[in-house]
Amino acid sequence: MASQGTKRSYEQMETDGERQNATEIRASVGKMIDGIGRFYIQMCTELKLSDYEGRLIQNSLTIERMVLSAFDERRNKYLEEHPSAGKDPKKTGGPIYKRVDRKWMRELVLYDKEEIRRIWRQANNGDDATAGLTHMMIWHSNLNDTTYQRTRALVRTGMDPRMCSLMQGSTLPRRSGAAGAAVKGVGTMVMELIRMIKRGINDRNFWRGENGRKTRSAYERMCNILKGKFQTAAQRAMMDQVRESRNPGNAEIEDLIFLARSALILRGSVAHKSCLPACVYGPAVASGYDFEKEGYSLVGIDPFKLLQNSQVYSLIRPNENPAHKSQLVWMACNSAAFEDLRVLSFIRGTKVSPRGKLSTRGVQIASNENMDAMESSTLELRSRYWAIRTRSGGNTNQQRASAGQISVQPAFSVQRNLPFDKPTIMAAFTGNTEGRTSDMRAEIIRMMEGAKPEEMSFQGRGVFELSDERAANPIVPSFDMSNEGSYFFGDNAEEYDN
């Protein structure tokens, strides 16, 4: 993207840094990872977990959730003011799984939030270390993106479920800051804005008074975040219109849905970061690795190297396929839920299948599930090659597409044709070009129609051997075009429920 120079890199967003050079960025990201790792080690000690239990991804998720809940100030305040039966607002906890007599047992633990905050700050040299908290939120978000298709949420806001490739980060909490905003897809931002506008339509006082002023500035800020994701002048001009509207209503909703559809071809720039579970960072720190000293990046080879040398386990339900569970977590670790499966298959070195073909449910185990038949197995999170994460949407291309997802959002900077089903997408653009945004709409449609099938995206960008740390010898991959490109292809993934 041309304006790259004016933006802070995501590592800076990730670490609240002012302008830093590459070495400083690597050190501050490393410091953040160190903090998460030290916190995780301490929690495993508190909970008396064995090494194996500490490497269980379900335990990692519970521990991450506990610290996120302990620092969720708004919710904590709300819980104190609106006490609900049987919930102690000062405590947080969740299921911890232990191996007892050759069987997995679930144990519900409860801790004072104050105590968890103390352990977290102690692991982070006394700081609140917001960057580390956001990092864990993005890992949870990436896992949700890989596990669930947001059909219901899309339909509720009037969008087409086939636009799911635009929904990265749709389950990120509001408090995820600049680093969170960077990884949100165009569809996620559109959905947040539509929800806001709908509230304004239904509630006369939404934009009024002292609160209304705050609401208005939040609305304009979200519009600017979305505008910054678009790469064409016409899309940005249309966002200006939406932002400046005196009284946002149905016309703005129409414009936003139009823009979301246009992003299936004229893709937005959305950041991709490899955020790993805390149970990967903990053992690495415990083994003596100093992330701050060595430096770390979320968008280069580092996460690949770390996963190459990590042992992570997962509980497996009786009829689940461990290899499929591994694929789910591998995609989440690489922030690749909406990437082209052919690119992923090449990088991973084994075939990556669409969601609907995987015999696996989510990673988390519900409290009512029976533990008797639970097994555990090693997650295979290694890769054959590594590639640089991208934040450009890439230019655009036609490809055989599917009944489910009709476009992709690249996660890796790797040369390819970008699949999208042009006739299906263009069919949504018939007729409606009147109104105050008509010239911009016409211009956007013209650009979409001009998108050429034979153009290559990320020209000359390749993948790298894991021994090639400096990215000196790019390998331009070859793809098996007979395979499906979309992950949520004609899909039956479970729906995400809060």
Rank of each mutant, 00 (worst) to 15 (best):
R8T: 02
G295Q: 05
A278G: 14
K90M: 13
M426T: 14
D255G: 02
M66T: 09
Y78L: 00
L47R: 14
N492R: 13
R174S: 02
V183K: 05
S287I: 06
R74V: 12
A263M: 13
L341R: 05
L264G: 09
L110W: 08
D302S: 14
I194N: 02
Q231T: 02
G393M: 03
G300H: 07
Q308W: 14
M481A: 04
Y219M: 11
L166V: 03
E64S: 09
P173W: 01
H140S: 12
Y148E: 02
R199A: 08
S359Y: 04
E455Q: 15
T350S: 11
R152Q: 13
N319T: 15
R55A: 06
S60K: 03
A251K: 06
A271Q: 03
Y281A: 11
S274F: 06
Q4V: 10
G30V: 05
S60I: 14
L61E: 01
D491Q: 03
N319R: 14
G295N: 07
V242R: 09
W120Y: 15
T437M: 02
M374L: 14
G200M: 09
P410H: 09
N473E: 00
N250P: 10
I197P: 02
M239F: 00
V285N: 10
W120R: 02
M456E: 00
M13R: 01
I197T: 15
E449N: 15
R267T: 00
A234N: 10
A181V: 02
D240N: 14
M331A: 10
C44H: 07
F412T: 00
S486E: 01
E495S: 13
L381C: 12
E53Y: 15
R436H: 10
M32D: 04
G295Y: 11
I388L: 08
D491K: 01
L166G: 01
R267C: 04
D145E: 12
G212N: 08
T396G: 10
K198H: 07
F338H: 11
G35I: 08
S262K: 01
Y148K: 03
N321M: 10
W207Q: 12
R213G: 05
Y313K: 01
G132C: 07
I406M: 11
L226N: 08
G393F: 04
Q364E: 01
N492T: 07
I445T: 05
I388Y: 08
M1P: 08
E80A: 09
L193Y: 00
K325H: 06
G490D: 03
M163W: 12
T360V: 14
D421F: 04
A366L: 07
F458G: 01
D421L: 14
A428G: 05
F412E: 00
I388E: 02
G94Q: 09
A251I: 14
R391T: 06
G394F: 04
L306S: 11
R121D: 06
R195T: 11
S377I: 08
F291Q: 06
L133R: 03
A27I: 04
L264S: 03
L108D: 01
G180S: 02
Q415I: 00
M371D: 03
I445Y: 11
L133D: 14
I138Q: 03
Q58E: 12
T134H: 02
L358Y: 07
L266N: 01
T130M: 13
M374R: 03
N247H: 15
K98T: 13
A251D: 05
S3T: 07
A387D: 04
T360P: 10
E469A: 10
T433G: 09
K452G: 10
S326V: 05
D302R: 09
R150I: 03
E449S: 07
V343Q: 04
R174Q: 06
L143P: 11
I257N: 04
A260I: 05
L166M: 15
L256S: 12
T157S: 15
T378H: 03
M371H: 06
S69K: 02
R117W: 04
M163I: 15
A442S: 15
V343Y: 06
S383N: 14
D128M: 04
S438N: 15
G485K: 05
K305E: 04
S141V: 11
P474A: 14
H140R: 01
F479N: 06
I425E: 01
S457I: 01
E80G: 07
I116C: 15
G268S: 15
R436F: 03
E210H: 01
S245E: 09
E254H: 08
M136K: 00
P423M: 07
R195F: 07
R213H: 01
R267Y: 01
L172G: 02
S407T: 15
G35E: 03
A129P: 04
R121F: 08
I265P: 14
T23A: 13
N432W: 03
Q398T: 00
T215L: 07
E339I: 02
V270N: 14
W386E: 07
R348W: 08
A181G: 13
Q364I: 10
A286N: 10
R389C: 01
S28G: 14
D34L: 13
S326G: 04
M456H: 04
M222I: 10
S274D: 03
M167K: 02
I316V: 13
E73T: 15
A178S: 11
R470L: 05
F488S: 04
M374K: 10
K214F: 09
R382W: 08
Q409C: 15
L61W: 02
I257F: 14
N370V: 11
Q58C: 03
M448E: 10
D145W: 06
T360Q: 05
Q409S: 14
C275H: 05
A451R: 15
Q415P: 00
A218Q: 09
R199H: 11
V363F: 12
E294N: 15
G394V: 04
R117D: 03
R213L: 06
V285C: 10
M1Q: 10
G35A: 13
A131P: 15
D128C: 04
S170M: 06
A263I: 01
K293M: 07
Q308R: 00
M163N: 00
N211P: 09
A70I: 08
I25W: 02
E455G: 14
Y78P: 02
R55N: 04
G94K: 12
G5P: 13
W104S: 08
S345Y: 06
F489L: 06
N368S: 10
Q168C: 09
V285L: 12
G37A: 10
D112K: 04
G180N: 03
T188E: 11
R261K: 15
I41W: 13
P354E: 01
R400N: 03
T396A: 15
D16Q: 11
V100R: 11
K229H: 12
V155P: 02
S297F: 08
P423L: 01
V280D: 00
A493H: 06
Y281P: 11
A337P: 10
R342A: 07
Q12S: 12
F39M: 11
R216L: 04
S287D: 07
M239V: 15
L108F: 11
T430R: 14
S467W: 03
T130D: 03
I301H: 08
Y313T: 03
D88S: 13
Y111F: 14
Q20N: 02
R162Y: 09
F429Y: 15
G393N: 05
A442R: 01
V285P: 11
D491C: 13
R416I: 04
A260E: 04
Y111W: 07
R65S: 12
L49K: 01
S314F: 08
A182I: 02
E14D: 12
C279G: 13
K214R: 14
G37V: 14
L56Q: 04
K87L: 01
D128Q: 05
I444K: 07
S413D: 00
D439V: 00
E73C: 06
I36K: 02
V408P: 06
G17Q: 14
L68E: 07
L193A: 11
R204P: 01
G394Y: 05
R99V: 10
K90Y: 03
I253R: 04
Y296Q: 11
P83F: 05
Q4W: 12
K273V: 05
A234V: 13
N144L: 02
T232Y: 13
V352C: 07
R19I: 02
A218E: 04
M1H: 13
N21T: 12
R74G: 03
I425C: 15
L61Y: 04
T130V: 15
A442P: 00
E380F: 04
Y496H: 02
I388T: 09
I316C: 14
P419F: 01
K48A: 14
E46Y: 02
I444C: 15
G54S: 14
A471D: 03
K87N: 03
R384E: 04
L79H: 04
S245N: 03
M196R: 04
T390V: 06
E455A: 13
G349F: 13
E455P: 08
D480H: 11
G5V: 00
Q20P: 15
K227F: 13
H272E: 09
